[in-house]
Design a protein around this nucleic acid. Structure first.
Lengths: 343, 343
DNA sequence: TTGAAAGCGTTACCAA
DNA sequence: TTGGTAACGCTTTCAA
C-alpha cells in the first residue's frame, strides 16, 4: 500500500486537508509546520495519486493519440513530435494504433473517452471516419487531414501549395511531361495535392496531354512501382514524377531504373514526408514536408487552450508551410552523388 | 457534464448500487428491471468513468512504455507490437519517449507511478539505468536488455546465440577474416553478441589475428561508416562484417562500396533488427532479429499475471530465439549452392 | 491558518 | 435481489 496524504497528516499531527493545501502551495506563508509537512512527505516517499486528483478536479493530464500505423516511419516521426510537445505541456499520451481499421478507431475513441482524456489527437484512417468525432465532450484535433466537420480542429500542411511548388520546380528544371501518382484510396490530402499540381501545370502552359494523373496500385512501394511501370509500358513515360509519399516515390524509382532510365536525369522524382529512409545515401530522395515539430506543437494547442481557459476550443485550423528538401532524385545534386560514391 | 450511474438510478427509480451491479453483470437472473437499466444506460449514452473505477478497485488498465527513440524504426516496430499485445490484453499504453536521456527516464518513471499504471515496460537508455527500477510497487519488464537486478523481469533475444549463428554462417560461406562492429556505448546486448561471435570463430579455428572487434564511431550509420573505413585504411579489410544493428551495417556497406569493393562478394555484411528499410530492394540487407510479435506478447505477460493472480511477478525471464533473414548482402546464393552440394 | 465535512464516480459490503 | 452506507485518495468549501 502506498503513502497517502492521510499518512503524512497522522505523522505531522495535522488534518489531511492541511497536508493537501501545503503540498499544493495554497498557503500564504512558510511556517515551520509547512516545512515539516513537506519534508515528511519526501521522507515517506509520497507520490500523489493522479487518478484521485483528476477524479475530484474533473480534468486530466492525458491525451489520446490515434495513429494508423506506428511502425510506418512517417507516423512514428510525427508521433515523436506530438509526444514531445505533449510532455512539454504536461500531458501524458495514450498511444492507439488503429491499424487502418475504422472499427479500431471507434473502439479506441470510446476507450479514451472512458479514460477521461483531456483531448484526442487523431491521424484518421480515412476522410469518412471524421464523423465519428462529432460532438465529443473533449476537443478533437485532426492531424494531417483537413475536414468539413465544423466542430473539429485540424492541423495540416498546405498540400495544394506544396504540390504547386513541386510542379513549378519540375518545370523550372525544364521538365515538360509531368505525372502525379495519387494515393491508392482518395482523400483530401491526395486530392488537394492533385489540384495544386494541375494548377501549376496549367499556369505554365503545359499541354493537358503531357500531364498524367495516375494512382498508386496497391500498397506503398509496390503501388508506386506498378503505377510507374504501367505508364512506361504504355509509352507515356514522364520526365518528372511527383508521388503522394516517399514510399510510392521509392517504388517509382525502382520502375524507372528497371526500365533502364536514370533517375535525376531521364526522370525526376519527388515524394512527400521526408521519412528517415529518404535521407539515406542510397536513396537520397527529394521530398516535401512540413516541420513535424510545428505539427506536434500545433496539435496540442487546442487541447491546452481548452483546459486552461475552460472554454471549448472547436474548429481551430492551423495550416503549416511546406518545405522542399532538395536531394538527388531531381537531378540537381547528381554531381555530388557521383563524387561521394567515388570518394 | 457526463452521465453517471446516479443519473441512470434516478431515471429507473433504483439505487445506484443496483445500477452498478446490473452494469457489471453481478446479478444472477435477468429481470425486467435489469433490461430497463441496461437500455436506459444505452439511451443516455452512459460511459463508465474508468478513473473512478480504478480508484476504488485499486487496479488500473494502463501500462507505461518507455522507448529511447520512437522515431527510430527499430523501436517503432517493437512499439507497435507491444501496443497491440497490450490492447489485446485490455491495457492502454502510455507512450514515453526518453530521448536517450536518463533524467527523462527517471521523470517518466515517477510520472507513470503517479498515474497508477499496472506495470512499466522499458527499453532502457543504458545498463546503468536499471537500478532506477528497483523496488517499484508495480512489475517492471525490461525489453531488449537483460539485467543483473533480481527483481526485474526481462525479455530479450538470445544475443550470444544470434551472433554465434552469424559467425558460423559467415564461416560456412568460406569467409575467414571476420569483424564485429560493436555498439558505440557498451551494453549487455552488444557484449553478449561479441561473446557469441568470438566463441564461434574460436570453435572454427579462425586465427585470432583474423578476427577484428571494432566499435561504431559515433551515431548509427555514420558510426558504421567510419569504423569500416578505418579498418580498410589500415589494410585490415575483413571479408565478413557483423554489425551491432542495421544502421551500422548500412554505414559499413557505404564504406565498403566507396572502397571499390562489392558487398556480398568481396565483403559479406549482416546486421541486427530487420528494420523496415533493410528489406528495401536497394538495401536488401541480411539481418538477425527475434519475432517482434513474440517480444510484445512476452513483455505484457508478467504484468498480466500480476494483475490476474495478484501475486508479484518478479524476475521473470524470457529468452527469444533469433531468426536470420537472408537477403543479398552476404551473397547468399553462393551459400545456398554450397549447402546443396554438401547436402 | 486550520480542520471538519462534502463530494468526485465508482465498487462492495451488509443488513433487510 | 435490493438499497443504504462506507470507502478509494484527493480537493475544496465553510465555519471556527
Amino acid at each position: 500500500m502506498s503513502v497517502t496524504i492521510k499518512d503524512i497528516a497522522k505523522v505531522c499531527n495535522v488534518s489531511h486537508s492541511t497536508v493537501s493545501r501545503v503540498l499544493n502551495n495554497k498557503c500564504a506563508r512558510q511556517t515551520p509546520r509547512t516545512e515539516q509537512i513537506i519534508s515528511t512527505a519526501k521522507a515517506l516517499g509520497y507520490k500523489p495519486n493522479t487518478l484521485a486528483q483528476q477524479l475530484v478536479k474533473r480534468s486530466s493530464n492525458m491525451v489520446g493519440l490515434m495513429i494508423p500505423d506506428i511502425a510506418n516511419p512517417h507516423y512514428s516521426e510525427i508521433t515523436k513530435c506530438v509526444e514531445d510537445a505533449a510532455a512539454c505541456a504536461g500531458y501524458r499520451v495514450f498511444l492507439c494504433n488503429t491499424d487502418w481499421d475504422v472499427r479500431k478507431e471507434q473502439m479506441y475513441r470510446d476507450s479514451l473517452l472512458e479514460s477521461q482524456v483531456a483531448g484526442i489527437i487523431v491521424m484518421p484512417v480515412c476522410d469518412e471516419s471524421h464523423v465519428m468525432f462529432r460532438g465529443l465532450p473533449v476537443p478533437v484535433v485532426l492531424l494531417g487531414s483537413r475536414t468539413l466537420e465544423p466542430e473539429l480542429s485540424y492541423v495540416v500542411m498546405d498540400n495544394e501549395r506544396a504540390a504547386h511548388m513541386a510542379a513549378e520546380y519540375f518545370i523550372g528544371l525544364g521538365r515538360r511531361r509531368l505525372c502525379y501518382i495519387a494515393r491508392p484510396v482518395e482523400n483530401y490530402t491526395s486530392s488537394d495535392r492533385e489540384k495544386g499540381f494541375l494548377a501549376a501545370t496549367r499556369e505554365a502552359g503545359i499541354a493537358a496531354k503531357d500531364v498524367a494523373i495516375t494512382r498508386s496500385k496497391g500498397h506503398a512501394l509496390k503501388g508506386g512501382y506498378r503505377a510507374t511501370k504501367q505508364l512506361i509500358e504504355q509509352n507515356k513515360t514522364p520526365d518528372a514524377i511527383l508521388a503522394f509519399n516517399d514510399f510510392i516515390a521509392l517504388g517509382a524509382i525502382q520502375a524507372v531504373e528497371e526500365a533502364g532510365l536514370t533517375v535525376g536525369e531521364d526522370v525526376a522524382v519527388m515524394g512527400f514526408d521526408d521519412i528517415l529512409f529518404s535521407s539515406l545515401p542510397k536513396i537520397n530522395l527529394t521530398t516535401i514536408t512540413p516541420s513535424n515539430e510545428e505539427l506536434g506543437k500545433a496539435a496540442i494547442l487546442p487541447i491546452l487552450q481548452q483546459t486552461r481557459d475552460d472554454l471549448p476550443a472547436k474548429g481551430q485550423v492551423k495550416i503549416l508551410q511546406p518545405h522542399m528538401v532538395l536531394r538527388a532524385t531531381c537531378g540537381e545534386n547528381i554531381a555530388r552523388k557521383r563524387l561521394s560514391i567515388q570518394a
